[in-house]
Design a protein around this nucleic acid. Structure first.
Lengths: 255, 255
DNA sequence: CTTATTTATGTTAATTGTCAACAAAAATAC
DNA sequence: GTATTTTTGTTGACAATTAACATAAATAAG
């Protein structure tokens, strides 16, 4: 019997019994009490259980607000402002492509109430967010990146190649005047590049912490973008130097 | 300082600190460890805290288990039993295809501690469940069915056609001796059919309420299955009449 | 297929936490 | 003021935990 199997048995028992006893489990599973103890310590590290004297109980997680536990990350307020500005670009009957990421997730939350809209995404958190809405959602498919919920790989790329959308909201890790938009891995860059190519218009959504940064893999030049939406930090940057064709929108707090 | 005062101090600390330590408290409150222990035992009797080794944590009220609000549906206990029996078929390095549905979601929950496993699915709840695990997850892609989180449509079908897996767990709406496995829409049936075709082995997982039922669209004959896992209700059905090639496993409560 | 390496498990002894029993102290009742 | 109850501290027996090491099993490497 594998350790994982054994741990599953323990969890199963806890679903019925509220509390389990180490010695009883050891006898039942024909292993030493020490092994059970190690299992319990492992499960406690995973925050699945809580150790008690001679046993353990289930660790009931706290209630979460959204489908996913959305711990308020860095620049959350900025992202919300950007998202609010972004949805103004969305018209009825549009097909919209949403990159994976927290900024685009904020956009998804605002699209929640729209109708006659199709959203394509490679982010399962975005899909989950729109699950109970009237928006039509298409997931690209692909291999899921753990802890993030973004889909990557050949399957994703193949889907994107057969796609055309009206509007693409591109999230970025790094944007730079000369270098353009870049991503930390070739895999991500490749996906984003395909997304740009399959969209009629691409708007970059990025809070100011991403500006003036460079990363490994090139996604596209700034010229490929229809516009940029960022928070007021972009002012401290140099909006005048951005190519003229580029409409730069600065999201700001409303009065 | 009154005993009740002291106990309130303990509870206050627990609201901030998640876990408290007996010796530290004893020193801080200038009482013996034994006194703190008695306080903690008292508070545990009141179901306000839970004792751990050398300390205590707050007793949180009951909440949900999974990323999604999984209101305990019909036949939940049966589904869990079936799931437990099903994962016994899973070997390391397997690639497993999971149909969308609540029974297969239960299977996913049990898989989430396994390693060296690849899971393919068209259900975003299953994907979400496995997001924080070490299991490699591949989503088929496709159009998301609202309120359920299952992916359908041509995109899904195309992905399935280019796929081969070791083991497929098929969830069913209706199973019948003569008619075989059926689904309520052609769209769903089409997906399930493709899944059966792309798998080395197909095991049907269905609680007994699904047995002896017919629906509109045919998925496959019983002969196409490698086996069936159901709860004990299947006994009231007619296991002897099932085709001989079919191994029927009945999941039952352990002694 | 064999060997090396990692991982999992068992055993022990030292440490730490727990409990029960009793005694002392404090609070309360009469 | 004394009696009674409640609370607290102390002690020793016992149980659980941990760390450290040894062994076995599984996996990877050659």
């Amino acid at each position: 019997m594998h350790p994982n199997e054994r741990r599953n048995v323990i969890l199963e028992q806890l679903n019925k019994k509220e509390k389990i006893d180490i010695d009883a489990l050891a006898a039942e599973l024909n292993v030493s009490a020490m092994t059970i103890r190690r299992d319990l310590n492992y499960l406690e590290e995973q925050e699945q259980i809580i150790r008690t004297l001679g046993g353990a109980i289930l660790n009931k997680p706290l209630v979460m607000e959204s489908s996913f536990q959305t711990k308020e990350g860095k620049h959350a307020a900025e992202k919300r402002l950007i998202a609010r500005r972004a949805v103004e670009l969305v018209q009825e009957h549009f097909t919209i492509l949403l990159d994976s990421g927290t900024t685009t997730l904020e956009i998804a939350k605002l699209l929640n109430q729209k109708r006659n809209l199709t959203v394509v995404t490679n982010d399962i958190k975005i899909a989950a967010e729109l699950m109970d809405s009237e928006v039509k959602v298409i997931l690209t498919g692909g291999e899921m990146q753990n802890n993030i919920g973004a889909l990557f790989g050949p399957l994703t790329e193949q889907t994107l190649r057969n796609l055309h959308v009206d509007l693409f909201f591109l999230g970025a890790h790094a944007v730079h005047l000369q270098v353009g938009v870049t991503a930390p891995t070739f895999e991500k860059a490749s996906i984003k590049k395909l997304m740009v190519e399959s969209a009629q218009a691409t708007w970059l959504v990025a809070d100011s912490s991403k500006l003036d940064q460079k990363a490994l893999a090139k996604v596209c030049d700034l010229e490929a973008l229809s516009g940029v939406i960022s928070d007021s930090g972009i002012k401290a940057y140099h909006p005048r130097e951005l190519p003229e064709l580029l409409e730069v929108v600065t999201a700001e707090e409303e009065a």
